[in-house]
C-alpha cells in the first residue's frame, strides 16, 4: 500500500502535465546485437554504431536465424523498446532488422557499401554519446513505408533527450538520404570556425558574445564515418513477426545476382566448347583429321585416274 501511495504522490506532483496533454516523453533504448557468422567488418560497424548511441545496449551474438521472435523477449529482458539486429548470411551478405519491440513494426534492410570508421581515415571526431542532429531527405515524407522507416530511424539513431550517458553538446549530424531506391547514411562532425573575411568592430564582438555568437561563426562538416547503404526489403506489422505490410519488389537478392553472374560465365564456356566440337566434326567430315572418317574416294580424283 505504501508503494501505491508513493507512486500516487509522485505522479501528483511530478508529471501532471505530461499525462494530461498526452505528450509522450521520448524514451528509447536500443538493443544492438548480431547473428552468428558476421564478418569482422560487420562486427566493427556494429561497434561503431554502438559507440554513437549511448542509449543502446549491446548483447552477445544471437544464436538462431529462424526464431527471431525470441528477440522480443530478449529486448524486454534488457528493458529495450528498439532492436537493431544484424543478420549475416553466407558470411558475406548482411541484413539489418530494425524493430519496435512489443508491437512492431519491423523493417528488414539489406546493407551494402559498408565502410567502418576505422578503415575510413576521416579526420572528424565527436563526443562519445553526444546527441546527433538527424537530417532526413524530403523523400522520406513522400510515401507511407518511407515514413515508417524514418520514424524507426528517429527512434533508433536519435539519442533521446536526457539519456543516461549522453553528453550535453551537439557536435555531429547524421544524414539519411534516399537515392536510387536506397538509403544512404553518413555521419559528419559539426565544426564551427571563425568567419575570417568579416571584419567586426569591438562593439560588434561584445554584442555578438552577448547574443550567443551566432553570427560570426561559420559551420563546416567533417565526415566521421561509418558509411553504409540500406535497401529496404520488407516491413512487417509486428515485431519480428506478423503480416507483411510492405515488400520491395525491385530488390534482387545478392544470391540471385551471384547466380546470374555464374550462369553467364557458364554460358560463355558452353558456347565455346560447342564451337570447338562443331569445328572438329566439320574437319573430320572434310577428311582433314587423321582419326576421323575418311572422305569417300571420288572416281574422278586425280590419284584414282592416274594411278
Amino acid at each position: 500500500m505504501a508503494a501505491v501511495y508513493k507512486s500516487l504522490s509522485k505522479s501528483g506532483n511530478e508529471k501532471p502535465e505530461s499525462s494530461s496533454n498526452g505528450v509522450k516523453k521520448n524514451k528509447q533504448r536500443v538493443l544492438i546485437l548480431s547473428s552468428r557468422g558476421v564478418t569482422y567488418r560487420h562486427r566493427h560497424l556494429l561497434n561503431d554504431i554502438a559507440s554513437l548511441l549511448p542509449h543502446s545496449r549491446k548483447d552477445a551474438k544471437f544464436d538462431s536465424k529462424s526464431r527471431l521472435g525470441e528477440l522480443n523477449e530478449l529486448a524486454e529482458l534488457y528493458n529495450c523498446n528498439n532492436v537493431l539486429f544484424f543478420e549475416a548470411r553466407k558470411g558475406k551478405d548482411l541484413y539489418v532488422w530494425l524493430s519496435k519491440v512489443p508491437n512492431g513494426p519491423t523493417v528488414k534492410f539489406h546493407l551494402q557499401n559498408l565502410h567502418t570508421m576505422e578503415e575510413l581515415h576521416f579526420t572528424g571526431n565527436c563526443l562519445k554519446g553526444s546527441r546527433p542532429i538527424l537530417s532526413f531527405d524530403a523523400a522520406f515524407e513522400t510515401q507511407p513505408h518511407l515514413r515508417v522507416i524514418k520514424e524507426l530511424f528517429l527512434h533508433t539513431f536519435g539519442v533521446p533527450q536526457g539519456a543516461r550517458k549522453s553528453k550535453p553538446f551537439i557536435d555531429h549530424v547524421m544524414g539519411f538520404t534516399i537515392a536510387d531506391g536506397k538509403i544512404w547514411i553518413r555521419n559528419y562532425q559539426i565544426s564551427e570556425v571563425e568567419q575570417s573575411k568579416v571584419k567586426v568592430d569591438d562593439e560588434d564582438i561584445s554584442e555578438q558574445a552577448a547574443t550567443g555568437k551566432s553570427k560570426n561563426t561559420d559551420i563546416n562538416l567533417v565526415e566521421i564515418g561509418p558509411r553504409f547503404v540500406l535497401t529496404p526489403l520488407v516491413i512487417q506489422e509486428g515485431s519480428f513477426g506478423g503480416p507483411i505490410i510492405y515488400e520491395n519488389r525491385e530488390f534482387v537478392s545478392p544470391n540471385q545476382i551471384r547466380a546470374d553472374i555464374r550462369r553467364a560465365k557458364a554460358a560463355r564456356h558452353n558456347a565455346r566448347t560447342e564451337q570447338t566440337v562443331g569445328r572438329l566434326s566439320k574437319k573430320s567430315d572434310l577428311g582433314l583429321r587423321s582419326n576421323g572418317n575418311r572422305r569417300a574416294k571420288d572416281e574422278l580424283d586425280k590419284s584414282a585416274l592416274f594411278a
Binding site: N26, P105, I133, P144, H145, V148, E151, I178, I235
Partner: peptide, 30 residues
Amino acid sequence: LLAALERISIPTDKSAPFASHQSIVSATET
C-alpha cells in the same frame, strides 16, 4: 503502414520542442 506509424510516432512538429527529437527534414529532395 499508416496505422503502424501512428502507433509509434513521436511528435516532431511545431508543438514539441526541437530538442526533444532533433530531426530535420530537408526542404528539397536530395
